[in-house]
């Protein structure tokens, strides 16, 4: 993704969670997260790698990568997050394609990326999947699912997020 697009994603994330958000470019993910047989990177290992280098100034770190992600039992994942934790990762690899594996238009990809970033960060705040298909917290198993949801939390998830943040501030 080009820097301008990433900047737009950053602004959307900042707006959604009302927390200062900044972009940092890093080299990675490291080679050991790659599974040679599958030609994919383990999202769980990438999360572990992110966790080793979280800057003091950051409460949450979201990795955005173009490598294809997987967990061992599944063929792929769009991303992974620690529910109620600090780290999350999103891959653009599958978001770049249409349902029948053709390249998707750039603005569609950017829109999908925003949704998946909000989704995985939502998990780090403690939100879980929402049964409301239009909610950004609904589970996406394919790009069609991603395209069905809006880049926003539904009313229930928004309320839940506020409660979780309040709970966190109290403790």
């Amino acid at each position: 993704m080009d820097e301008e697009a990433l900047e737009r994603v950053r602004r959307q994330v900042e707006g959604a969670f009302a927390l200062p958000t900044r972009l940092t470019a890093v080299n990675g993910p490291p080679g050991e997260t790659r599974d040679a047989k599958r030609g994919q990177h383990s999202s769980t290992r990438i999360l572990r790698w992110i966790l080793t280098g979280i800057p003091r100034s950051a409460e949450k770190v979201l990795g955005i990568t173009d490598v294809d992600l997987f967990i061992p039992v599944l063929t792929f994942v769009f991303g992974e997050a620690q529910v109620g934790g600090s780290a999350a990762v999103v891959s653009t690899a599958r978001l770049r394609l249409t349902y029948d594996d053709r390249p998707a238009p750039h603005d569609l990809v950017e829109g999908r990326l925003v949704k998946e970033c909000l989704h995985e960060l939502g998990h780090t705040f403690g939100l879980v999947h929402c049964p409301e298909v239009a909610c950004v917290m609904s589970r996406s198993n394919s790009v069609l699912d991603v395209d069905q949801k809006r880049a926003a939390l539904c009313r229930d998830c928004r309320q839940r997020l506020e409660d979780l943040i309040e709970e966190r501030n109290r403790s």
């Binding site: 383990s42 967990i71 039992v73 992974e80 998990h123 879980v128 999947h129 589970r139």
Partner: peptide
Amino acid sequence: EEIVRDSLASWLEEDG
């Protein structure tokens, strides 16, 4: 396999 356990647990936790 630890990675299988952890990744699957994480995937299911996201579902609540």
